[in-house]
């Protein structure tokens, strides 16, 4: 039976018939290639199908608690394994700028040591942490490809001491920003002391007043801000120069002129009131009042005599 069928097939197409030699795609291959040439199908297979598969898988993981937990632990483990590799270890921390003490404080604020994983370094957060230090105006933090964490610090410069209402003594810079607490005034004898409410917001006034009267500086005990608008300069011996709110520098220059001419500040005067610049007023100390009265009495008598 089989033989017969074979024979029949052989008759239909002789075994030694030349094979089809012509080049060209078979019908199936041709159809597949033509179908692939359709942009719709190609987009479906290469974009939408994978996307939807990922979507379905993702949804399954998210919707199933056990699966999600498993995926989370796996992912964290993988992350930790990668982060812990020595290739990603931090080689060191280099801090540039500021004083030694400030650098130590910045290092403390960074809170990382050599050997921590550089993958977990968040330079933006580190920068925020360093800039949170009072004594630092701004900082640049970068992680170089060799694994060094480089920090450049722009430190604030202390120009004055400020004592607030509660009696706490702080260092402030020219913008009046608090830099740090100070236990005794004597630690910074070269810095002026500022008192009074709002005084720290007008540090530049103090600096310009000091610049305008360098001879006065050794005598100054403190600058007192009065009513957040004008200054009193307290000199040694509890003497006070009251300056106007407008043009205090000119008023002070006048006081200094008086001092150079009349040695005003060496006299028994408690208050030099320049609040009305056109009308400087002096208040004598009690002993000065006494001496003045005495002198007036003497001169009155002398007048009588002559």
């Amino acid at each position: 039976m089989r033989a017969v069928r074979d024979e029949a097939e052989g008759a239909a197409r002789p075994v030694d018939a030349p094979p089809r030699t012509g080049p060209g795609p078979s019908r199936l291959r041709y159809r597949m290639q033509r179908a692939w040439a359709k942009p719709g199908l190609r987009a479906f297979v290469t974009v939408y199908l994978p996307l939807s598969l990922v979507g379905v898988l993702g949804w399954r993981v998210v919707s199933d608690d056990d699966l999600r937990r498993l995926a989370e632990t796996r992912a964290t483990a993988l992350w930790e394994a990668v982060a812990a590799r020595p290739e990603f270890a931090l080689k060191g921390i280099e801090i540039v700028g500021g004083s030694e003490a400030l650098r130590a404080r910045a290092h403390e604020a960074i809170g990382l040591g050599a050997g921590a994983s550089s993958l977990e370094v968040d330079v933006a957060a580190l920068r925020a942490r360093i800039e949170a230090l009072d004594a630092i105006r701004s900082a640049a933090v970068r992680l170089d490809p060799q694994g060094m964490l480089r920090v450049e610090i722009d430190a604030r410069e202390a120009v004055a001491l400020h004592r607030d209402a509660s009696g706490e003594l702080t260092l402030i810079d020219a913008e009046g920003v608090r830099i740090g607490a100070v236990s005794q005034r004597g630690l910074y004898p070269q810095l002026p002391l500022i008192l009074g409410e709002g005084g720290e917001r007008a540090v530049h006034d103090v600096l310009s007043l000091m610049d305008g009267a360098p001879d006065l500086v050794p005598r100054i005990r403190a600058f007192v801000r009065v009513g957040e608008r004008r200054w009193d300069i307290v000199l040694e011996g509890e003497r006070v120069i009251m300056l106007p709110a407008e043009a205090p520098g000119r008023a002070l220059a006048r006081v200094m002129a008086l001092h150079y001419g009349e040695e005003l500040l060496d006299r028994d005067i408690a208050v030099i009131d320049m609040r009305v610049p056109e009308r400087p007023t002096l208040r004598l100390t009690p002993s000065g009042v006494e001496a003045h009265r005495l002198r007036q009495a003497v001169s009155a008598e002398g007048g009588k005599d002559t």
């Binding site: 060209g24 795609p25 033509r34 040439a37």
Partner: peptide
Amino acid sequence: AARAIRLALLTAEKMAAPRVDR
């Protein structure tokens, strides 16, 4: 003949592929 036509068409389409669809 159909094979030869398919070959010609497919290769021409391949050349044209970035410009026009099939």
